[in-house]
Structure formats: C-alpha cells, structure tokens
Design a protein around this nucleic acid. Structure first.
Length: 414
RNA sequence: GCGGCCAUAGUUCAACGGUAGAACUUCGCGUUGUGGUCGCGACAAUGAGGGUUCGAUUCCCUCUGGUCGCCCCA
C-alpha cells in the first residue's frame, strides 16, 4: 500500500544506495578545496528576501518567479536561498572579512531552492558545491577557481565535460553591447525565426543558439561581446585565457554564454556535459566585481562558481556498490544473541565492521543475510559457548577458541 | 510559467472494455543448526477524485506526481 504522503514536488529522498556516491562527490570537493586553501563556510538556508532581490537582481528569472518566499511571525520577508554567492557576500561584510588577508577564499556545499518546473537535473531543492575568491581582481584568481572546478570534475571522472568561456566586460560595456545587438537583430527582423524575434528585448543573446538558417545568417554578421572588449577588460580576459592555456585547460570561447544573474562582470564560464539532457550545465560561475558594493560594502572584486551535485551524479551514473563487512556474528541458538551483540560491539571498537542479526532469522537465514551484505567471515556462536569461524569465500569453517575470538577475526582481517 | 508523453506489487514490465499476470527483491521450505546455484511456496499493486458503460487497468475530464522539450540555471 503506497503511502498517501510523498516527497514535495521537485524534491527527493537520498536513499542509502545513493548516499555513497553523493558522499564521494562531497569528499572529493572538500579535499580539493582543502589543498587549495578554500576554507569551508556555511550560511543559513534562508535569508532576508531583500538580499537576493538586491544581490541577484530584481529583473532576473530567479527573483521574479523562482523564489520560495515566506513571512515569519514577525512579519519579515524571508527567502529560501536560491543561490550561494549573495549570502556569502553578506557574511563577508557582516563579519568584516575585508579586514582579513585578501583574497578570502571560501568553499561551501549545501541545499538550495528554486521554484521551477522539475525535469532531469532540475529540482526544487538541489545541492551545490561552490567556491569563491573574494577581494582580488587578478586574472590569477579567475584561472585558479576555474582550474579547481576542472580538477574536481576530472577527479570525479565526469565524462564528456567541456569548458565554455566568455567575458561580459564591465556592466556599462555589457549594456551598450546588448543595445547594439538588439539594434542588429531589429534591423534584420524579417529574417529571424518567430522565436528569436519575440525574445529580442528579453534575451537577445539567445539568438546565437538558434538552429534555423535565417537567424544563423543574421548572427554570422552580429557583433559579439568578446570581440568588443576594450582596455582593462580585454587585457584581463586575455590574461585569463593565457593562464588557462598555460595550465593545459582546454576551453572554447562562447559569445552566447549568458548568466541569468545580474551580478556577473568580466569572466564567465560554464562546464557543460554532453551526457546530460536539456540541463547540460554541470557547473559554472564568473566574476562579480560589483556585488559586494551593491550590497552596501566597499568596492570588492570577486569570482566564484557553483556546481550541481545532482547533475554530477546524473552524469556519472554510478552503479551503487555493495559495502563489505568484515564479519557477521551468527547465533546457532537464541541464547547466544547477547554474546553476539557484545562481540560485535567489541569488533567495532577495534575498527572492524560487524553486524548481527536483528530480525530473529534462523541460522540458514542468517548465513544468507551474511552473504547478502558481503560479510567476509561469519562467526557462528554455539549454544555451548564454543564458536566456529566460517570463511564465506572458501566455505572453510573451523572451531575457534572462544577466548581468542576477537584476535582470530582481527588477525584474519589484516 | 508553456507544450508533448506517462502513471499497475518494494522494483522492472504484462493484461481485445469482461477472473489483474510475470520477473527481480523480501520471507519461508527443500528433513534432523550452515550462504551463493537450483526447485517449491508465501507476502504484495491498478496514484486520487469524478464521468461514460451491464461491466473500466483499458475510454473521457479534473487533480497529484513523473518524464522530455521550451524557458532558465547548478
């Protein structure tokens, strides 16, 4: 009988079988962050709504239609965090981290919330791993953070990953470019597909991705933002590219790269995976030199990224592996249950994995269960106080001295 | 938020509008306390609510959820 209750739309339970690979992803990230000096930070699951409105941008899809916003009993408007960068910048300011040696390098991992229509790789509660380097505008930081994510995906073995790189320049350069692009599109309006035409004002960059011939013809002569970068923006981007090339990181310049959050400036990047469906971005980020100032702090350049754990797992498509046990303590007679549990506890304190039957199975059932959980050895406790040690691989079984039980198992395990 | 497809045991799949079956899993049995292979048995399901019909798992509607695409993003 199925329960009338089920997980809320777009959410999921992490069951024991999935927990292992998920943990591996988190542990690998933690290791990579630790080696590079990106200290862990954790912020609350919800924040003042205004933090996201100001930080992410009121005109973005995220703020306009994807936030879980609620009022607390004091009438404050709170929002389940839809992303991690604005909260971290809030924490940076709130705790005076600008007084620390710059840049401040941080990493995080946790749940985020967006009210979107669920589909493969897109959930309403999802989990991100992220890194931020706050307080430097050096291209070195851009390259380092990108390399961190590249290393993570490589170490995890995510297949078919490709890095897309772009630069938005300064906010002013970006908006003047967008005006020019819109003008270009409008002047060729008849040649564009209906789809693209309708989105000229909303998202003109999308036109670069169109498949229809007419639009592609128009876009061939369209200006791209990367070729229009000037002065320091251009130098910065050139340096980032040189650093990535020097490190042997392959990338592709993507003039159509769009980040739907208002705070991005200069470098933006995205790691896509061809094993995924429509939600092909496995991780991405960019520079946000104006965000901290936007939140009321001093001008503070910064860069960071986030990667979706569910998307990584989807791309890895790992088969769950059966966990091994060093020993299973079987009882030939229920009178031995106490002894079994005590011995199991002792083995566990010695650092071994051991289980006992908790379901009242017969000896046959216990052996079967021991086999199922991958126990290497089964210790059968006899009613008369003696014991037999059975090797589950060879099937060999011999009596063991009750006094030396622990030694027999510990010794056999090493 | 918009379109397409879908919804049956714990899981994966069957069933011309007429008795809901199977496989895997779980539990038990295969003699007298010993796992894997094999055989036998047991537990166990039509997402919810309406409608059409003598009769609905099957057709229609609504809801819920999933999935794919759009949009957007991690």
């Amino acid at each position: 009988m199925a329960s009338k209750y089920q997980v809320p739309r777009g959410t999921f339970d992490v069951l024991p079988g999935d927990a292992h690979s998920r943990k591996r992803v988190e542990a690998t990230a933690a290791e990579i962050f630790s080696r590079a000096g990106y200290e862990p930070i954790a912020t609350p699951a919800f924040e003042d709504t205004e933090l996201f409105e100001r930080g992410v941008g009121r005109s973005t899809d995220i703020v306009r239609k994807e936030m879980f916003t609620f009022e607390d009993k004091g009438g404050r408007s709170l929002t389940l965090r839809p992303e991690g960068t604005a909260p971290i910048c809030r924490a940076y300011l709130e705790h005076g981290m600008h007084k620390l040696a710059q840049p401040v390098k941080l990493s995080y991992c946790g749940p985020f919330f967006r009210h979107e229509r669920p589909q493969a790789g897109r959930y309403r509660q999802f989990h991100q791993i992220g890194a931020e380097a706050i307080g430097t505008d050096s291209p070195l930081a851009d390259a380092e953070t990108i390399m961190l994510l590249s290393d993570l995906l490589a170490e995890l073995g995510v297949p078919g990953v490709e890095l897309r790189l772009g630069s938005l320049g300064s906010p002013q350069a970006r908006s003047s470019y967008l005006e020019d692009l819109k003008a270009h599109l409008r002047s060729h309006e008849e040649e564009l597909s209906k789809d693209v035409r309708e989105r000229i004002e909303i998202n003109p960059l999308r036109a670069f991705d169109a498949d229809d011939e007419g639009t592609q013809g128009v876009m061939a002569s369209a200006p791209t933002i990367v070729e229009r970068l000037e002065g320091e923006d251009a130098d910065h981007f050139a340096e980032v590219r040189a650093l990535l090339e020097g490190a042997g990181i392959a990338y592709e310049i993507d003039p159509t790269l769009v980040r739907g959050l208002d705070y991005y400036t200069r470098t933006i990047f995205s790691f896509v995976c061809d094993e995924l469906g429509a939600q092909s971005e496995v991780g991405g980020g960019g520079r946000y030199d104006g965000l901290i100032e936007q939140l009321g702090g001093p001008p503070t350049p910064a860069i960071g990224w986030a990667a979706g754990i569910e998307r990584i797992l989807l791309a890895l498509d790992e088969a769950e592996e059966a966990a091994d046990r060093d020993a299973f303590l079987a009882v030939a007679d229920p009178s031995q249950q106490r002894r079994a549990l005590a011995l199991a506890s002792e083995l566990r304190r010695a650092g071994l994995s051991a289980e006992v039957d908790l379901a009242g199975r017969g000896l046959k059932g216990q052996l079967k269960h021991a086999d199922r959980i991958g126990a290497r050895r089964v210790l059968i406790l006899e009613a008369d106080g003696t014991a037999q040690l059975r090797d589950m691989q060879s099937g060999e079984q011999a009596p063991v001295d009750p006094a030396g039980l622990i030694d027999a198992i510990v010794g056999g395990a090493s």
